[in-house]
Design a protein around this nucleic acid. Sequence first.
DNA 1: CGTAAGTTTTGAAACGATTCATTCACGGGC
DNA 2: GCCCGTGAATGAATCGTTTCAAAACTTACG
Lengths: 334, 334
Amino acid sequence: MAVSVKEVAAHAGVSVGTVSNVLNRPDQVKPETVVRVRDAIRVLGYVPNSAARQLREGRSRSLALVVLDSGNPFFTDVARGAEDRAAQDGLSVFLANSSDSTEREERHLDVFEQQRIGGVLISPAGDDLSRLETMRGHGIPVVLVDREAAGSGFSSVAVDDVAGGALAARHLLETGRRQLAFVGGPLRIRQVADRFQGASAAVTAEPTATLRLLGADEMTLDEGRRIGEALVPLIKQGRIDGIVAANDLLAIGVQRALLFAEEPVRIPEDVGLVGYDDIDFAASAVVPVTSIRQPRELIGATAVELALEQAVDGAPVRNVVFAPELVVRASTAR
Amino acid sequence: MAVSVKEVAAHAGVSVGTVSNVLNRPDQVKPETVVRVRDAIRVLGYVPNSAARQLREGRSRSLALVVLDSGNPFFTDVARGAEDRAAQDGLSVFLANSSDSTEREERHLDVFEQQRIGGVLISPAGDDLSRLETMRGHGIPVVLVDREAAGSGFSSVAVDDVAGGALAARHLLETGRRQLAFVGGPLRIRQVADRFQGASAAVTAEPTATLRLLGADEMTLDEGRRIGEALVPLIKQGRIDGIVAANDLLAIGVQRALLFAEEPVRIPEDVGLVGYDDIDFAASAVVPVTSIRQPRELIGATAVELALEQAVDGAPVRNVVFAPELVVRASTAR
DNA sequence: CGTAAGTTTTGAAACGATTCATTCACGGGC
DNA sequence: GCCCGTGAATGAATCGTTTCAAAACTTACG
């Protein structure tokens, strides 16, 4: 059952050292020996034991990506980006899901630390980064994902949500809308607050425009529908002609409410609608929703790169911030 | 940097064997010694090296779950079920995403085999199971998820899609509908074919009922909408009064088309609608959709159990099939 | 106080790969 | 024919744990 270098060595008539060399630096072994060893490996069905290698090398060849919600397409794409980038360096990425629970997160981190994992890419569940500081203290590179962390001492990759909010509002202004509403909340969520702040700034820059905040208790379809119902009369009275939603689920909920009102509101004729995140449903909604896209795969790839940087000594901490991108669809056409 | 049992032992004034015992069978160590060792562990910040443990034990304490699409809520929930069940036995679960690519899948399996992973739970990308047979040959338990595998020699967990299709159709019949339509495809997808077959059987059992198949090219919102448009006249003419969709995306697409038709079709008054999978969007659609739920978390938990069973010698292969469940909502009310 | 029967603790061997100082083999040059 | 240099192969030491036979220590009892 247990085929190890030893058996391979015996079968090929060489020493274990040579087998190891064939595996790791074949150029230093005589070609015909390489062939002989490779044959033995194939015949015996040898599979290297990475536990042993790792024990010897002191560090694993894998990275871990810990996300808040593995069902969220945002993280799925971040993961894909990370995997692809890691594969370039022969590394693999383990996905772990904290489900926004610090306890689950901790359990995963414990396991990874015991694995002497090569690096942790994480979108932390809480505000307490001390567990991560311990890991870093133990020499494990840590990169924060989707959370700005200048000053925390951690490298990070994030997207500029202030810019995203501004992008959304400015697009509505540029297509002639003047009375905007921002739908989203709660504001304690950093991303939401940033997006609102960005929208605010864009509106302030345009003297004739106004922005009204419609707070949400959660970022769901149903909540969007609730708020959408409240919006109908405002739009009918000409007091709102553009809507920025803090994410696509809210935007789609709002849209449903508007289209289904007693006296339906037309999109984009009566009101322009911009979402955020550019999830699949945004494009296939009844009226396809203009949205703000984040470079999700790039975020993942960059996180891997930052982790690799950290791995070399005297690593300079870097905080990368990406710019979001506007995707125009029917919901804001003019 | 490297704190090992040796340092802990020295600090606590005991031998390494005792430290190991404190870690693994504390009941066999004198309580006051346990305390002393635990203190040393805490003071030194010792973290066990699982590579070393694994090397010694010959097998990892982790399982791997390889899914086709980590963005699909179905798999997310399966994963949660697997993690929770595994945690009970102190095991952890690594998630890997094959994105339906055999190549990616293979890469992951290679890594896991090198890790001497404790077991692989997989929803295979292709039809070729030979790679998995090799793994099993190397003593790694393999469990097929969401794929019936009686006769393949692998343990498996799946849901009875024939029964699910029957459940959906029968519910429409029981609420008085007689002219049913099945929306779904392509039929080469096993799940779709099974669901259709089940619906067919249920309809055949009711002499006065008919079933009409409306093939789909893919299982998406847009395709549902396209088919829904074709359904409107049929419903208006009284030739269809119940719809079974092969999944919720199709059902929601159909619903949109019906509600938005020139002359809207009322749901559930004019036509009953049943989806499949019970995704979140089903409950929060404009008219909440009756759906067929699969015991997703249970599937994950069971897969873990089957893997654990396989791990003991002379393991009997088991093929578990679960029954789907009907979730009644407004779209089929009478 | 001695002995038998537990309880605890010990420490060396083993797991499988990598490393690196050594040894070996083979030509080429003198 | 001898020496040296080079390229190739060797194998013992090492990583951090667990295990387990043996040693050391306790306790109970006659």
